Amino acid sequence: MQTSLKSLLSGLVLLASSPALAGSATTIPAFDAKIATARTATSPGGTTVTRVEMQGAVDLLINDDNQVDAAERAHMGAKLASTTFLTGVNGSAKKYLSDTYELNDTATVAAPLGSYPVAGTPAELYGATGSLAFASVIREGYIPNGQGVANQVTLVETFNANAGGYKAASYFTPITTQELIATLSANYYATHATVDEVEGALAYIYQIYRNSSRLYVAGWSGSYHSGYMQGFVVAAVSSDRRFVRFVEVITYGE
């Protein structure tokens, strides 16, 4: 689990520092090729497209420049509307595609999402103490009625605006409850989170997304004075897409 999280974070850090590639002219054919490979009998999921395989294809649309442009989103929309395409795509894979499509609505202006420290310490909110609680920072807020929804640009800009100016996230991607548990269970400053902390954090985050199934994660990194730190942030979004709870966790610092 630690290796998995390190891979996620290092990948996001690398992408954030990489120059933009050719855009949709390159990413859309790459997406189609990745799906075609996923449908072959020798692929990990056999002829069925699994969530992991769909994630590998969909993420090509955002990884080149940290955003989904209009052409890339239109391509995802066409696939979601195609019964031919969805044949052989399992439910979890379809949800990853659908969730990414919804989150990346190509808006260029963030909605006015509030983000304020919550009452109580992470240990109090998780009901347990340990490395996860120590490394957590929790904020939440809502978008006024009629002033937009929590989409990609809103989540990124809101998190970065409250990140202290020395760290930043590039983009959020959908995450399942099982993936969240694995992420929360990773090492923090070389110590393991306790089971009680993970279960408490999961329950606290679940309060927000249980009715919406809108749960996202982003890696972040940054320099502070002469040091460096990195971590992840989970964004749990309510069913009306107006309320967001951010759980930010520092996993490494020097």
Rank of each mutant, 00 (worst) to 15 (best):
E124S: 11
S18Y: 14
R139V: 11
G88R: 10
S238T: 11
F246W: 04
A135S: 15
R245M: 02
E248T: 12
L184N: 02
P117S: 15
G253F: 06
S82I: 00
K95D: 08
L97G: 01
G127H: 10
T50K: 07
A203H: 04
F159T: 09
P112C: 05
R214Y: 08
R242F: 07
N211G: 05
G148D: 07
G127S: 12
E72Q: 08
T47P: 00
G46C: 06
A25G: 15
G23T: 07
Y101A: 01
Y206G: 03
T191G: 07
A163Q: 07
L86C: 00
V244K: 07
S131G: 15
S136G: 06
V233F: 07
R139G: 06
Y188T: 13
T48N: 03
A203N: 13
A169L: 06
V198I: 14
L14P: 03
V233C: 13
T50L: 04
D65F: 11
L97R: 00
T50S: 15
A57P: 13
S185T: 12
D32I: 09
G56K: 02
F85A: 00
N187P: 05
D240A: 06
M76Y: 00
S10L: 15
P144T: 14
S82L: 00
E199D: 09
V58Y: 00
A163K: 11
L97K: 00
L97E: 01
H75P: 01
M1P: 11
S98K: 15
T177K: 11
S18D: 14
R139W: 04
T100P: 05
L86K: 00
N66D: 13
A128F: 04
A169M: 08
V58F: 00
A163V: 08
G91P: 03
A36S: 15
G231C: 10
G141M: 11
L8P: 00
D69C: 01
L215D: 01
T37D: 05
E197I: 08
D59T: 10
Y216A: 06
N66C: 09
R73N: 06
L180D: 03
T26P: 04
D240C: 10
F85I: 01
I28M: 01
